[in-house]
C-alpha cells in the first residue's frame, strides 16, 4: 500500500466509504493535487483532516486519528 492508501484505510472507522473522497477534498483545499507529496505537505493534509475529525467527533477521536496518520507519514519518510 502507498501512503495515500494507508491514510484512507486508517480513516475508514470514522469516515467509512467517504475516507478517500475526504482526503481528496483536503488536498484540493490545500492546493496539493499534483505529483507526489513531500513529508511537509502530507503533514499539512494530516492537520487539515484532524481539524475535520475534531469538528466531527471531538478531541479523543481526533487525537487517535492524528497519532495514526502521523505514524503513517513518518514511517513513509523513513522508508
Amino acid at each position: 500500500m502507498n501512503v495515500d492508501e494507508k491514510i484512507v484505510a486508517y480513516m475508514k472507522p470514522l469516515f467509512g466509504d467517504m475516507a478517500e473522497r475526504t482526503v481528496g477534498v483536503q488536498k484540493e483545499k490545500l492546493g496539493l493535487t499534483k505529483g507526489e507529496l513531500s513529508y511537509d505537505e502530507y503533514k499539512r493534509v494530516v492537520t487539515s483532516i484532524v481539524a475535520l475529525c475534531r469538528g466531527m467527533a471531538g478531541d479523543a477521536i481526533a487525537r487517535k486519528i492524528e497519532d495514526g496518520l502521523n505514524g503513517i507519514i513518518s514511517e513513509s519518510r523513513g522508508s
Binding site: F15, M18, T22, V25, L52, G55, M56, A57
Partner: peptide
C-alpha cells in the same frame, strides 16, 4: 459523530 459536517466538507 457529526455526519452533517462530513457531508458539507465532501
Amino acid at each position: 459523530i457529526d455526519m452533517a459536517k462530513l457531508r458539507k466538507e465532501t
